[in-house]
């Protein structure tokens, strides 16, 4: 296979991994927007919180690097659950302290409050871990499947010699990232579609007052939305830390903007749209990094965001709310 094609395949793999973690963050944006119509500016910083808190938990446990045996199959999921619990609780607390008093205020007020929260969190991370690039130890064992005998022999039976594909790599880390993000996204979709709470969330998103009249405790639904959204962002932060092995206190802002763009692209308020948008943005980022140059990626992504909002503000799949145009 030619080098160009190999580069393309590798970019697709990168795009899917980026899309995976963006999807987890974008879901939080879209769920919160769906219910209280707030662009939760601080949501990206919860992703960063997941990164930092899981780093701290790992440092406390101090497992052998890379993880193996019981550490891999027991400690890792336990840390993930604890991270989700803590990040979800933080998001819940933020909602109760900062957004809840402003539920009936003009929409500018909670948005600005969210900006304030975001800056506060980032400053706290900078104090906590230092305003520098933080290494995330390589806890997750890395093995390239392209060098695995079984995989090589499997493909040679199909008549393909993948040892020649020197540029392409698909590692255990890639698989781990897909293995966490895709089931979680699927679970969340099921949760929204099939459970009572999910039904109540959809009802509250459609019409909060009507939902209230039907006996739904809307405040509790909003709180659980913040909790679930925060938990997803937290686990995304942890998985991304294990995958990319470094981060800094502003990483939440960057990731948050991309995830938000994904949510808008797919149609804000629309769960499936957020996932679709995240994978599209992940792909665009990977392709732009490779073919245009990573310094242009921001321009490309934000350019797409502007064009999308100008020409189709309801997103690809359409948002649950109709966006008033005047």
């Amino acid at each position: 296979m030619s080098i160009d094609n190999q580069v393309f395949i590798q970019n697709v793999i990168i795009g899917l991994t980026v899309g995976g973690y963006l999807a987890l963050i974008a879901l939080g944006y879209t769920m919160v927007y769906g219910i209280i119509e707030l662009i939760n500016f601080a949501h990206g910083d919860l992703f960063a919180f997941g990164f930092f808190i899981s780093l701290t938990i790992f440092a406390e446990i101090n497992p052998e690097i890379p993880l193996h045996g019981s550490d891999l199959y027991f400690t890792l999921p336990a840390v993930a659950l604890l991270t989700m619990l803590l990040t979800g609780s933080l998001n819940l607390a933020i909602d109760q302290i900062a957004y809840k008093p402003l539920r009936k205020a003009p929409r500018l007020a909670p948005l600005l409050t969210a900006v304030g929260i975001s800056f506060m969190l980032e400053a706290i991370y900078a104090i906590w871990k230092g305003p520098i690039q933080i290494p995330y130890p390589r806890y997750f064992p890395k093995e390239d499947y392209m060098e695995n005998e079984h995989v090589i022999s499997f493909f040679s039976k199909l008549g393909m010699d993948i040892t020649e594909w020197r540029i392409v790599s698909f590692t255990t880390k890639d698989l781990f990232l897909f293995g966490v993000t895709i089931p979680l996204v699927a679970l969340l979709t099921l949760f929204i579609d099939r459970t009572r709470i999910g039904k109540a969330m959809r009802a509250s998103a459609q019409d909060r007052e009507a939902a209230m009249m039907m006996g739904i405790n809307v405040n509790r639904i909003i709180a659980s939305t913040f909790f679930v959204g925060g938990a997803l962002a937290g686990v995304a932060g942890m998985v991304w830390g294990l995958y990319i092995n470094s981060g800094r206190f502003t990483m939440g802002f960057e990731a948050g903007l991309m995830a938000f763009t994904s949510a808008v692209l797919g149609g804000i308020g629309n769960i499936r749209g957020a996932v679709l948008g995240a994978f599209i943005i992940g792909m665009i980022k990977a392709m732009s990094d490779s073919y245009i140059g990573s310094e242009w990626t921001r321009v490309v992504i934000f350019g797409i965001l502007i064009l999308m909002l100008v020409f189709r503000p309801s997103g690809i799949l359409g948002s649950t709310q109709s966006i008033e145009k005047l």
Binding site: I39, R298, P313
Partner: peptide, 20 residues
């Protein structure tokens, strides 16, 4: 013509594009 918070996001994106 976009509603308030969408306008906020467009301007934010614009503010990120210019320095880049």
């Amino acid at each position: 013509r976009l509603r308030g918070d969408y306008l906020a996001i467009v301007t934010l994106a614009f503010g990120e594009i210019i320095p880049a």
